[in-house]
Each structure stands twice: as C-alpha cells, then as structure tokens.
Simulated assay, not measured.
Amino acid sequence: MGDGRGDGRGDGRAGRFGGRVALVTGAGSGIGAATARRLAEQGAEVFAADIDGTAVAAVAAELPGARALTVDVADPAQVDRAIADATEAHGRLDVVVHAAGVDDPAAKEWIADALLDGRPPEVTTRLGDDAWRRVLRVNLDGTFHVLRAALRVMAPRGSGAVVTVGSSSAFDTLAGYPHYAASKAGAHALSQAVAKEAIAFGVRVNTVAPGPTETGMAARTPTALRRGFADPRVRPYATPEEIADIALFLASEDAANLVGAVLLANGGRFTV
C-alpha cells in the first residue's frame, strides 16, 4: 500500500518519504509548519497550504522544492484546487496531513476570567451563532472538505495516507469550550467513518489528538488558563515537532496496520 516510506525512485530524493508528494494544511505555523519541515527533511515533495499566505510562503521558502498555497479549508473550492494543484504537479498525491484549525480567544478569556474570580465559567449562554459557526466551519467542515478532496484523487490510484489533527479536548472537554470540543469530537468521528470506507480503496486515514502544545494558538491562551493545564506529574506542553513526528508515523508504512486510529498525545494527562 504505497502510502508511506518511499524508495526515492520518484525523483531521486532519499528518505522515508523520498519520491512522495505531500500536502499539509495549516502549514504556516505550529504543528502544520513542523510537519511540512519534517516531511521535506525526509524526502517528500511538499505543498504547504495555509489561510495566511505570507506565513506559509515563509515556511515553504525554507524547504527545498516546496510550494506554498493560500487555502481556506472552510471553502471547499479552495481545498479542491489545492489538492488538484498538488496532484497535477507530480501526477500523484501520497500524503495529506490536515493540521488547519482555529480556536476561540474570546471564549478562552471568559474561562480565564472565571478562574481568576473563583466562579464557574459562563460561556454557552453568551456564545453567539457566528462564533459557533466559525469554529465548526473550519474545524469540522474543513476536515470534511480535505478528506473528500484527498479521497477523490487517492482512491482511484489505490493508495495514500491522510492524517487529521484532532484534539484531546474531544475527550476531556473543557468547561466553557463547547464549540471547540464539539468540532474536534466531530472531526474524530468523521475521520474514523471515512477511514472504514477509504481502506477498501487502499487509502489509510488516521488521527493524532494532541494535548497542550506550544503553538501560536497556545500562545494566545490566557495565563490563568495555561496555569490550569500545568501539572508537574505529567510531561510539559508538547513541541510542534513532537506532534509532527506522530503524524509522520501515521502517514508512513510503519503504521500500515493502523486504520481509523485516534492517537492520544497529551503527555499523560489522561487516558481513554
């Protein structure tokens, strides 16, 4: 199932993903950027996609042969175009890592304020329709758009690997963060349902579900809330590179028997 480690015959590039073509969403920063770098280091031809065109262009400029694509995953036409661009450039698409996602800084502030005041957070009654739809549109709808577009090009070739980036929040839901938890739980279930369908066509779909990770999103987390995630009994915040390494494992032939897995990567904060 040619969905991971290549032999480099495609273009002479050596490495675990030599000769492979990979597209990474959310590649302008954080886990997505780390994943794009790791894939390039291991021989892949990388298409780095992000809604922030300037940021993703800077990441792509670091990587040999990489191309930057400006993509809003909430827009299915943009996702379809990005997948088509990657496929047309090399005649194939072997790996997709979907790391694009959004949080809600305003809701985080409300939760942090409640922590500082020693009272329960009150978010759901204050949560507007626009805030709800924004998080679901990007995190859940965007995952569907990426999975659908990837399968349309991978299934006819009978091979490929897709990795979606979920969240520990889908299991250990944070009080006052219902839209984010719902979006990630939905993305997990969506990925697993698609995985059971896609494997019949030689395409593997899996998910990595990080806990607290040092990304731009984490940098926007209020101090009081970050303090709540600190626990000396478990590992500290993960680095983006640590999560990227798990994504690459799932995309490689080392994980050939993993289909529909959701790998919890939270440093020991909880198990499921």
Rank of each mutant, 00 (worst) to 15 (best):
A198E: 11
I111K: 01
S191V: 07
D80E: 15
R13A: 14
A66L: 10
G15F: 05
N206I: 10
A256H: 13
P232K: 06
A49N: 00
N266Y: 02
G267S: 06
R137I: 01
R269C: 09
L127D: 09
G118F: 12
T271Q: 10
E109S: 10
R233H: 09
G8V: 14
P64Q: 11
Y177T: 07
A247L: 06
L127Q: 15
R92T: 14
R157F: 01
V163C: 02
D3K: 09
V153T: 14
E122F: 00
G101K: 01
L190C: 13
R119P: 04
G91A: 11
S29C: 05
R119C: 06
P222G: 12
A114Q: 11
A255T: 08
D129R: 13
T215I: 05
D11F: 08
A150I: 01
L127H: 06
Q192H: 00
V59L: 02
W132Q: 13
P210D: 08
T207I: 05
I51F: 08
G18D: 08
A60R: 00
P236K: 12
R157A: 09
V24W: 02
D104E: 09
G8T: 06
A175Y: 01
E45K: 12
A181E: 04
I246H: 03
A219N: 13
L23P: 00
V123K: 08
A155T: 13
G216N: 11
A209M: 13
L151K: 01
A84P: 05
A247S: 14
L258N: 00
K196Q: 13
A149M: 08
T143P: 09
A89E: 07
V135H: 09
A244F: 06
L258I: 01
V135Y: 05
R13Y: 06
H188M: 05
R16W: 01
T25S: 10
A200N: 08
L264F: 11
A219H: 10
G186T: 06
A224E: 13
E253A: 04
T70R: 15
A48W: 10
E242T: 05
R126Y: 05
V79A: 01
G158C: 09
A34N: 07
P232R: 08
R133P: 00
N257F: 09
F47K: 02
E241R: 15
T173H: 07
D85F: 03
L115T: 13
A150W: 03
A161E: 13
F47P: 10
L69E: 06
R137D: 15
A149H: 05
P236G: 15
T215D: 03
A34Q: 02
R235T: 11
D130P: 09
T221H: 02
E122G: 03
A195E: 03
F249M: 06
G176V: 10
E214S: 09
V71C: 04
G228A: 15
A161D: 08
A189M: 13
R137H: 15
W110N: 05
Q192D: 02
T173K: 11
R148D: 08
T223K: 15
A224N: 12
L250G: 04
Y177R: 12
D245R: 15
R67G: 08
G176S: 12
L190K: 04
